[in-house]
Amino acid sequence: MRDSVLSNKEEYLNALFSNEKESETKKLSRQYSEEVGRARISVSPPESALISLLVKMHGCKKFVEIGTLTGLSAQYIFESLPEGAELWTLEKEPAHGDKAAQVFAKIDQSKKKIHLVMGDAREELEKLSAQGPFDGVFIDGNKAAYMDYLVWAEKNLRKGGLILADNIFLSGSVWNDPSEQAQRFSDKQVRILREFNERLADSELYQSAIAPTQEGLFIAIKK
């Protein structure tokens, strides 16, 4: 990499945490995300490494992921959980869930478990409450439902629980970026993400910070 010509920070970080170094099942998840036309929203290698590290440092044993896609981020979370831990990952789209299930079937779950939950997350989360309290949640689903997910997390995470939320910049739309990519989000999505970010930034409720990844990753600990 030292002799390579890299034009920007994103290229440099992707070279450091290259997906060429990923396991075969992670590569399979990336392949499947391309097949369903959603490769663009898969977590990047640098983001994946950060999420994995945060989950491991926090010592989470019962974790919930909202937004499975084809199972890539779930694998990074799962490998950072200790023995005896459980991960529940929620997905609404059957085509995505089918791909994720194929990937999860190839993963050793003899010492910890992945539970793929299909259906609308807002409905399935209420059913999942009986399994709580949980140690952490990764929010990466329907942007218009982020506040609903957060309200659920506040009720079902233990004190000191970890909240990770991806895509909180909405391509810059939360600060009125004039770019075409930012303008593709609806007024409702922008309003909800602003409200979501403001709540996680409330120091009376959370100890929090934002990792300025390309799309923004909120990191918060529930007080």
Rank of each mutant, 00 (worst) to 15 (best):
D135L: 08
C60W: 03
W88V: 00
L69Y: 07
A74C: 05
M57Y: 00
I107M: 06
K92C: 11
K92L: 15
E123Q: 13
S129E: 12
G136D: 12
E83F: 10
H115C: 09
K127S: 10
S80I: 12
G132H: 00
G67Y: 03
M57P: 10
K111G: 09
T68Y: 12
V117E: 02
G67M: 11
H96E: 07
E126C: 08
L69N: 15
T68H: 10
A105K: 14
R122W: 00
E83D: 15
E79I: 00
S73K: 02
L125A: 07
L69R: 09
I107P: 10
Q102F: 02
A130T: 14
I66V: 15
A121R: 00
P94W: 11
E83H: 15
G71M: 07
I66K: 02
F134Y: 11
I77F: 09
E124G: 00
L116M: 10
E86K: 11
K92T: 04
G59K: 04
I66E: 04
A121T: 00
E86Y: 09
C60Y: 03
G84D: 13
W88P: 08
Q102A: 13
T89I: 08
L90F: 11
A100S: 02
F138H: 03
S110E: 15
H96V: 03
Y76F: 15
W88R: 08
V103R: 04
R122F: 00
A100N: 05
E79R: 13
A100L: 01
L87V: 07
K99T: 06
W88T: 03
E86S: 14
E126G: 01
M57D: 01
I66Y: 06
F78D: 10
L87C: 01
K113Y: 04
L81C: 07
E86V: 14
K112T: 11
E83K: 15
Q75Y: 01
D108P: 09
Y76D: 13
V117N: 03
K127I: 01
L72V: 07
E91Q: 07
G59A: 02
K111A: 15
A101T: 01
F104G: 05
C60N: 07
Q75F: 00
L72D: 11
A101H: 07
V137M: 14
A105D: 14
W88C: 02
A105C: 00
K127Y: 05
L87Y: 02
F138T: 10
A85R: 05
Y76L: 08
G132R: 08
C60I: 04
L90I: 14
T70S: 12
K112D: 11
K92M: 14
D108H: 12
E126M: 09
E79V: 01
E65S: 12
A130N: 10
Y76S: 03
K61W: 04
I114A: 06
E126P: 07
F78M: 09
S80V: 11
K61E: 15
E65M: 13
G71F: 02
